[in-house]
Design a protein around this nucleic acid. Sequence first.
DNA 1: CATAATTAGTTGACAACCAAATTATTACAA
DNA 2: TTGTAATAATTTGGTTGTCAACTAATTATG
Lengths: 145, 145
Amino acid sequence: MLKENFNHYSLILDQTARRVKQYAQASFSLNEIDLTVDQWAVLKTLYENTDLTQKELADKCGKDQPTLTRIVDLIIKKDYIKRIEHPSDRRCLHLQLTEAGLKKVEDLAPTVSKFREKAWENLTKEDFEHFTRILNKIYQNLEQK
Amino acid sequence: MLKENFNHYSLILDQTARRVKQYAQASFSLNEIDLTVDQWAVLKTLYENTDLTQKELADKCGKDQPTLTRIVDLIIKKDYIKRIEHPSDRRCLHLQLTEAGLKKVEDLAPTVSKFREKAWENLTKEDFEHFTRILNKIYQNLEQK
DNA sequence: CATAATTAGTTGACAACCAAATTATTACAA
DNA sequence: TTGTAATAATTTGGTTGTCAACTAATTATG
């Protein structure tokens, strides 16, 4: 295995990830969805997990706390979520979907799944297994203890 | 194949790409390299291809023109490259490494290859083939004509 | 030859990323 | 109990990505 290739692999990974995100964002815009892809990921995660703190949410979404703080700020402006105090730890904030946020997620989930499909056309069941296994391996290789 | 999974795959792709970049950037910092990962990619590409226009360079690096313009601006501030006029087309600009830039690339190349390796530990030759094939397929699925 | 369409590069606005520093609160230890 | 360390969230600064709009130069067309 030539070392030169590693740079190349990094590039492929980077570009593909950007393309997938870009395509999703374009689909959002076409459907006049007033969210960014990352905002959607956060909303979806909150839909699937109630009463997360920001730290927990950040971990689940794979984002930094500062990044998450800003994304949350933006979604709050759109009135889809709200911060509420943690009952026993005043450092923490629980996040909850508002009525509008709940409705938003339920309305959009099928649509979003639909145009997420395109990226994965012409891939077999085995491909998905390879994909998941290899990317997880890479991720773990770089895990900081 | 459940549609729900597609969101998950997108997330894995995104997070892995970010981790790889993040690890590389951390290694740069540890070694007190005064470049970002993207700036390095641009320098390296210019080392391997002389007299590229910004458009050609953007294509080779897989970046937009606006993004590239800004990265180039930053590298120029560090005196590693310079813009020179295109001999026959006054819309274009050729980019060239300066003496310092040339030295920089030659000094750093082995070091950078070294810590790029870590991400790809424990992967087989077949894994690399799958990786390349699958990611290229995804990229092509989303190619805008 | 004049006008329209295309191309290369830049800029502005906004979102997201990371690192480092800051604040407030809680947990732990001398 | 007091002080120190750890934790949750935020803020700040710098870089990158995307989109849209713009300028200047070149090519195509009528």
